[in-house]
């Protein structure tokens, strides 16, 4: 009975892990621009790899295998956001054409490419909360 439950859990982990890896690949093929492809690869791919590493920890057992798989999961969870953030930043800076359905770009004009800094957003009159004014009409602060 316990064996059956373990096998069912193991098969579910294996199938869902491989399924998420396949979903990542489909997303990379189907999504319309680089940033969305990065999104598909980083999220679904990390989840698929982590699930398969969990499957290894459950299916093989033993302290060394479990420790290495859990370390692998932790490593994936730590590094993939950093790597995908760097790819996204590089993609944005390169100016790759984005999907035409994108309606706003909050980073528009904020990157100083030669200094490699991102300036804080310019408050526009439409979106910013009203600035409290002092008695002589000049902005406070």
């Amino acid at each position: 009975m316990t064996d059956l439950v373990l096998d069912l859990l193991l098969a579910a982990l294996i199938l869902s892990g491989a399924g998420f890896a396949l979903i990542a690949a489909i997303g990379i093929w189907r999504l319309p621009d680089s940033l969305m492809r990065m999104h598909a690869s980083s999220k679904a791919g990390t989840l698929g790899g982590s699930l398969l590493l969990f499957a290894v920890a459950l299916g093989i057992g033993g302290l060394d295998v479990v420790a290495r798989s859990l370390a692998g999961v932790g490593f994936l969870l730590f590094t993939t956001p950093i790597a995908s953030h760097l790819i996204a930043r590089a993609t944005y800076l390169l100016g790759v054409p984005r999907w035409e359905g994108q309606v706003r770009d909050d980073l528009e004009g904020r990157y100083d490419l030669s200094a490699r800094v991102c300036r804080p957003p310019q408050r526009s009159a439409a979106s910013a909360p009203p600035i409290p004014e002092t008695a002589d009409g000049s902005p406070a602060g």
């Binding site: 193991l10 294996i14 892990g17 491989a18 890896a21 990542a24 690949a25 990379i28 680089s34 492809r37 990065m38 690869s41 980083s42 791919g45 990390t46 698929g48 790899g49 398969l52 590493l53 499957a55 290894v56 299916g59 093989i60 033993g62 060394d64 295998v65 290495r68 692998g72 994936l76 790597a83 995908s84 790819i87 590089a90 993609t91 390169l94 790759v96």
Partner: peptide, 30 residues
């Protein structure tokens, strides 16, 4: 474009990790 290829390489490496996990499960060699 170049970032598309980098993303694809990243995904291929993740797929290789998944394949290695399947090898561990199939053969039992850690």
């Amino acid at each position: 474009s170049l970032p598309d290829r980098i993303v694809a390489l990243d995904m291929l490496a993740l797929t290789a990790i998944a394949a290695a996990c399947l090898m561990v499960l199939g053969t039992g060699h850690a």
